[in-house]
């Protein structure tokens, strides 16, 4: 049995959770395990349908008002109840901030190893997984041979795909055993006003990237126009946020967001490992850079050699002129 912890938002399951379900199904097919889910959010019809599309026949829903405010410890306690009662051999979630936090609690509670940011399964007996280390610049094959394997799936390690046979997902409500001590770390308050939503960036089809080549906080006008013309999102390198030119929520990389757009257009980004870690899942990369030897250029599919402040306005002009025909 594989238990997948899923996350949801107003639209249903998150993209990352659907990826994790697809990853789990492929692992389950190889290892001979069925996949069940744990849903902390209210299991709406939309969530049930998405779970069914992913081939999940049974979803466990820990139902306790004390879980409505997130705490890594209390959600993990509820998940461990499900893991024990269903005799699961593998527990996984997407490697999101919450996913990794809950899994770390589960691994500590079960006193077993945990593999973070797994991208593929090397073998199932014994279970050896491949995971990203050094921000994705290297891979580690890691053995998970404890009675229960705990792993997080790296964002965009696979595309979410529907199962060949859809299921009607049954929801089993469970009453978790919670200790008061697990509730002290619950979220006390959420400030919506300062919310900086990164889901628009992580799920965007087109991302325009900007690095040191932007030149300053005032150097983003053309880049933002290109972003708008393409209906995409702006992503920046670490140096841009460190210098205070753009907010940290726009950072792509090892210590920022992971993106997997159809097209990524890094402009004036040299392509240090820190940044590559967050953008290597892009399907097509078009680099715009003055330096033809920059790592981002040599790793890209397409490149324009030139200053972004000349190239980007020209692209914008060309896009506008073709649009008006």
């Amino acid at each position: 049995m594989i238990i997948v912890l899923v996350e949801a938002n107003a639209d249903g399951l998150t993209l990352f959770s659907r990826e994790a379900l697809t990853f789990a199904r492929a692992l389950g097919d190889r290892a001979g395990h069925a996949v069940q889910a744990v849903v902390f959010d209210e299991p709406t019809d939309a969530i049930r349908q998405q779970l069914g599309e992913q081939g999940v026949a049974l979803a466990h829903h820990p139902d306790d008002p004390r879980l409505s405010d997130y705490a890594g410890a209390s959600w993990a306690a509820a998940a461990v109840d499900v893991v024990r009662s269903s005799a699961a051999e593998i527990v996984l979630a997407s490697g999101t901030p919450r996913g990794n936090e809950i899994l770390a609690h589960i691994a500590a509670r079960l006193d077993v190893r945990m593999a973070a940011n797994v991208v593929q399964v090397e073998s199932t007996d014994p279970l050896v997984v491949t995971r990203q280390v050094v921000g994705g610049a290297a891979l580690e094959d890691m053995r998970l041979d404890d009675p229960i394997a705990v792993l997080s799936v790296a964002g965009h390690a696979c595309d979410p795909q529907a199962a060949s046979v859809a299921m009607t997902t049954e929801v089993a409500t469970v009453s978790p055993t919670l200790d008061e001590r697990d509730l002290v770390t619950r979220v006390m308050q959420v400030e919506q006003t300062q919310a900086e939503d990164t889901s628009a960036l992580t799920g965007a089809r087109v991302v325009v990237g900007a690095g040191r080549g932007a030149g300053g906080a005032e150097g983003f006008t053309d880049l933002l126009e290109l972003t708008e013309l393409l209906g995409g999102a702006l992503g920046v390198s670490r140096v841009v946020t460190s210098l205070g030119w753009r907010p940290h929520s726009e950072q792509v990389g090892q210590t920022g967001s992971r993106i997997a757009p159809d097209l990524y257009i890094p402009c004036g980004i040299s392509g240090a490992i820190q940044h590559w870690a967050g953008c290597q899942s892009a399907k097509t990369i078009l680099a715009i850079n003055t330096d033809p030897e920059a790592p981002m250029v040599t790793r890209a599919h397409y490149a324009v050699i030139g200053d972004l402040h000349e190239v980007v306005p020209a692209i914008n002009k060309e896009l506008r002129s073709r649009r008006t025909g």
Partner: peptide, 8 residues
């Protein structure tokens, strides 16, 4: 930063 905003 949480999924719905800044968590305290």
């Amino acid at each position: 930063d949480g999924p719905d905003g800044t968590e305290i």
